[in-house]
Computed example of a mutant assay.
Amino acid sequence: MTNTKELIDTRLSVLAGLDVSAINHAADMLTVQFGPLRETVTRKGTMKRVGLWALHVQCHWQIEQPGVVVATQDDLYGPDEKASLATERLEESLVRSRVTTVESVAGSESGALCISMSAGLHLVITPDGVPDNEDWRFFAPGVDANHFVIEGGVVDPPSLT
């Protein structure tokens, strides 16, 4: 039997002590880069700056501080201009205007994840629990290795090979 909480905690423990280095979006998917940025070549042959680790979130998420919700997945829904403004605002407040460092990560059996960061910030991810729908994935960009994927609130089996 898979211990989802333990797998999440173990796989994402590498984030502790790393800075949030970039925040962006692809349609309504939140993308977060952690660790120093480096250049890599995409499948299309273009250069892209990526962190040591990346988190792609396609389910419910919110960034919060004590008593305040800073952003949610709703900020990325709608026209691309709206999503671009939202990620620009997050990039400015979490990356460019201050250093935001990961303090800890905590998973749950439901595939949920909370990344606690400096300044009392938390990225809280709550899977939709819809079978065959990817909730979130964690991986090292540009590295030929399996991605750790939560799909339908559970660990996608190929993540374990």
Rank of each mutant, 00 (worst) to 15 (best):
residue 48 K to I: 08
residue 27 A to Y: 10
residue 20 V to Q: 05
residue 111 G to H: 01
residue 36 P to T: 13
residue 134 E to M: 13
residue 62 Q to W: 10
residue 63 I to M: 15
residue 159 S to F: 05
residue 63 I to W: 14
residue 55 L to I: 07
residue 109 E to V: 05
residue 6 E to P: 02
residue 83 A to E: 01
residue 71 A to Y: 01
residue 137 R to P: 01
residue 88 E to C: 02
residue 125 I to V: 15
residue 115 I to P: 01
residue 74 D to Y: 01
residue 29 M to K: 13
residue 84 S to C: 05
residue 155 V to E: 04
residue 14 V to G: 05
residue 26 A to C: 14
residue 59 C to H: 08
residue 52 L to E: 15
residue 26 A to I: 14
residue 39 E to R: 13
residue 127 P to H: 00
residue 120 G to T: 03
residue 160 L to W: 07
residue 121 L to E: 03
residue 39 E to T: 15
residue 146 N to F: 07
residue 150 I to F: 02
residue 28 D to S: 14
residue 27 A to H: 11
residue 94 L to M: 14
residue 101 T to C: 02
residue 141 P to Q: 04
residue 135 D to N: 07
residue 133 N to T: 07
residue 18 L to H: 13
residue 103 E to G: 03
residue 65 Q to W: 04
residue 116 S to Q: 05
residue 147 H to R: 12
residue 123 L to T: 05
residue 20 V to M: 09
residue 24 N to W: 12
residue 106 A to D: 00
residue 34 F to I: 08
residue 101 T to A: 00
residue 126 T to E: 10
residue 158 P to Y: 09
residue 129 G to V: 04
residue 69 V to T: 15
residue 3 N to Y: 04
residue 69 V to P: 07
residue 92 E to K: 06
residue 98 R to C: 08
residue 63 I to R: 11
residue 147 H to A: 14
residue 96 R to D: 12
residue 37 L to W: 09
residue 15 L to N: 06
residue 92 E to R: 10
residue 44 K to T: 05
residue 134 E to R: 12
residue 54 A to F: 03
residue 126 T to L: 05
residue 137 R to V: 00
residue 149 V to S: 04
residue 53 W to R: 14
residue 123 L to P: 10
residue 105 V to G: 01
residue 56 H to Q: 14
residue 36 P to F: 07
residue 94 L to Q: 04
residue 98 R to K: 11
residue 96 R to A: 12
residue 159 S to M: 10
residue 153 G to E: 06
residue 38 R to I: 08
residue 109 E to M: 08
residue 56 H to T: 08
residue 50 V to M: 07
residue 160 L to I: 08
residue 84 S to D: 11
residue 91 E to N: 06
residue 18 L to N: 13
residue 17 G to Q: 06
residue 11 R to H: 13
residue 131 P to T: 10
residue 125 I to A: 05
residue 13 S to W: 09
residue 153 G to W: 10
residue 160 L to H: 08
residue 95 V to L: 07
residue 6 E to N: 12
residue 25 H to E: 10
residue 88 E to I: 00
residue 130 V to F: 03
residue 125 I to H: 02
residue 133 N to G: 00
